[in-house]
Design a protein around this nucleic acid. Sequence first.
DNA 1: CACGATAGACAACCTGGTTAACTATATGGA
DNA 2: TCCATATAGTTAACCAGGTTGTCTATCGTG
Lengths: 156, 156
Amino acid sequence: MSSYVPGFELPLRLLLAFRMLIDELHTELHQQGHPDIRPMHGFVMQAIGPDGTTAVELGRTLGVSKQAAGKTIDTLERVGYVERTTDPADSRRKIVRLTAYGMDALDRSARVFDDLRARWAAELGADRLRELESDLRRMTPGNPWRLDTPGWFGNL
Amino acid sequence: MSSYVPGFELPLRLLLAFRMLIDELHTELHQQGHPDIRPMHGFVMQAIGPDGTTAVELGRTLGVSKQAAGKTIDTLERVGYVERTTDPADSRRKIVRLTAYGMDALDRSARVFDDLRARWAAELGADRLRELESDLRRMTPGNPWRLDTPGWFGNL
DNA sequence: CACGATAGACAACCTGGTTAACTATATGGA
DNA sequence: TCCATATAGTTAACCAGGTTGTCTATCGTG
């Protein structure tokens, strides 16, 4: 709105900064052979991890029901980012694993984020950026790898 | 997941910080007579503004179709945050205005965000917080009142 | 070996987005 | 003045992704 309230700016700037980075990442990925990737996919693939996981476990990690996790896996499978294999040790379980294409998306994401961070460092100075990260780390204790973001966005 | 990639931390911390503020805001609001408010409502009510708006205009502001804006208005109307009145000057238009209850939600949000910012200042020091905000402002040029967040979240 | 727990699939439902089609009303130019 | 065009809002059909509940198959243990 028009009325300037200092307290409003902090959350909005944090969100804008996040959106900027995510948008730039995906513009890059779309040009680098990943036209179908969406921001959510990155979170899910991070949650799947290098060793694979199951729908139930993925649901717990993402903060959604196992059914919702199953649907998400369906989507990623259709795009070619994951594949399901049955667990030889337990025929109830289906292990979801990243494909080479999926791992490529994660590798490229890491590289793009590093580039974007370097751009921030060039603009702000390396010291200021480190301070910014340190301050954010201080205000958001715990590991940054909380991947329940899909569940969180769900009830926005 | 486990492999530490510096570039990944920045966006994740920005998002975590945003989520923390939003979650704390809504915990507060739920206890202050707004049990039905959801994060999205704040954005929409900000977009409606003190003078009211129409569904088409709101859709443009939020970055969604006029039909989606209409549905959102329905929801907010049901909860009691907005009311529709017909424009006497143009009988096609229906002006959507915040109710007193809706304005109360915005007022309380502003106060809670100010409190949260004060808590950050107490933890980080006022100078560091101002630097953090200044750095974010520098990296996210433009006004922070881009309210197309609902549309943006839509295709996450 | 039977029973409780677990993994996954399926169905029905909700929300909030989309596009398309339709009605009613304004508006501006011939 | 009248008609063509543009605009506001509603409705419908569809989609994605979340929910809960139910069902089957399999595991593991007492």
